[in-house]
Design a binder for these strands. Structure first.
Lengths: 176, 176
DNA sequence: CATTAATTTCAAAAATCCCTGAAAGTACGG
DNA sequence: CCGTACTTTCAGGGATTTTTGAAATTAATG
C-alpha cells in the first residue's frame, strides 16, 4: 500500500511489520523477520522517523532501541498527510504564487494566469481544509465524514432560500 | 507535481502542457514542444486517457486527434482521485476484508485482527466520504470545505445536548 | 579511556523504471 | 484494395532508485 503514500516498498514493509506486531521491535528483529540488510533497515527506520510515524522506547539493561507505531490509524494517517502537506503541498503553493506574479501581457499569458489561479485556489483550499480537519479526534472525524453529503442538502436549501429572499448570496454557509 | 499523484514525470509534463495551452494540441505538437520521442508522447496520452483526464476533438480535413484538459480543476482532481480510488483503494479494501475473515486463535491473532479492523474502518470511511463528495459542484465543495471546522462546533454542541438529555447518543449527526 | 555493542554512512552493485526508434498496426481517401 | 498519414507496440538501452556490506561513528560499561 505504502508505495502510493510517498514511501518506498521496503520502508512500507517495515512499517507494516511494526504496525501488526503486538510488541515493539528493534532493528535486528526487523532484519531477521524481513531478511533485509541491517543497513537497509536502519535507513528505513530513519526515514519513518523523519515522517514522524514511529514511537520508540529503551529498556533497562538493553542498549537497543525498540520501535512501534501509534495505536490509532487516524493518528498515523494524520502524521503522514501532514508531513506530505508540508513537504510537497506548501512548496507547490509557493511556486504557484510566484507564477501568479508574472506579468500578463498577451492573451496567452491571461490564459496561463487563469489556469494557475484555478489550481492555486483548489490546492490552497484543500490545504487549509486539511489543517482544520487535522485537529479533530477520530470520533469527531467519523461524525463529520458521515455528515459529509448530508451537509450539502442543508447548503442547497439555504442557497435556494437566500436567492429567493434577496441578492445576498455571499454570506458564509457556516452561519447556518 | 504529478509524480506524487501516481503519474510519471513525462506524463505529468504532457498534462501540464495541455493544461496551460490555450488551444488543443495534437501528439506532434507535444513532441516538438517537449522534445520527447513520438512514441513516448503516444504512451503518455494513452495513460492520461486511461485516467480519464483528457478531452479530445477532431477537425474537418485533419485526421489528427487534438487534446485538451477539462477547464475546471476540481473536475480534473475528481477524475484523478476517483480513478485511484477504484484502482488502489477498492482492491486494498478487498484484501483487508479477506484478512478480517481469518480465524483468530491466539492473542497475536486478536491483535492483528484489531489492527486490520482499524485500518479497514478508516479507509472505508474515507472511501465512502469521497464517493459522496465527488458528486458536488465546485461551488458546493468550496462552501463545504469552508464549513469544515465550523461544522465540528455544531457537532460538539449537539453531543453535549444529547448526552445531557438522555442516553440516546447514537442518533446520526445528520439529523441536526 | 579502552572495549564492545549498536547504529549510521556511503560508494558500488542490483533492481527497477522509463525512453527510444524501428517495425507493425489502423483507418481514411481515392 | 493501395498509398498515405498518422498511431501504437515492444525489445533494448539508459537513467534512476534501491539495496547492500564494509568502514566509520556513536554510546554505554568496566
Amino acid at each position: 500500500m505504502g508505495s502510493r503514500w510517498g514511501i518506498s516498498r521496503t520502508v512500507g514493509q517495515i512499517y507494516a511489520l511494526l504496525y501488526i506486531s503486538h510488541v515493539p521491535l528493534n532493528a535486528d528483529d526487523i532484519t531477521h523477520l524481513l531478511s533485509f540488510s541491517r543497513s537497509n533497515v536502519s535507513m528505513g527506520l530513519k526515514e519513518l522517523q523523519s515522517w514522524r510515524l514511529l514511537r520508540s522506547e529503551y529498556r533497562a539493561g538493553d542498549r537497543r532501541e525498540y520501535f512501534k507505531t501509534p495505536e490509532d490509524v487516524w493518528e498515523i494517517f494524520r502524521a503522514l498527510a501532514d508531513e506530505r502537506r508540508r513537504r510537497e503541498v506548501e512548496p507547490t503553493l509557493s511556486i504557484l504564487r510566484e507564477c501568479l506574479l508574472d506579468p500578463k501581457n498577451t492573451p496567452e499569458d491571461e490564459h496561463f494566469h487563469a489556469r494557475m489561479q484555478g489550481m492555486y485556489d483548489l490546492i490552497s483550499m484543500a490545504n487549509e481544509w486539511f489543517i482544520d480537519i487535522q485537529k479533530l479526534s477520530a470520533e469527531d472525524l467519523t461524525s463529520l465524514m458521515h455528515m459529509g453529503a448530508h451537509a450539502q442538502k442543508l447548503l442547497h436549501a439555504k442557497n435556494r432560500l437566500l436567492s429567493f429572499a434577496s441578492g445576498n448570496k455571499d454570506r458564509a454557509p457556516e452561519e447556518l
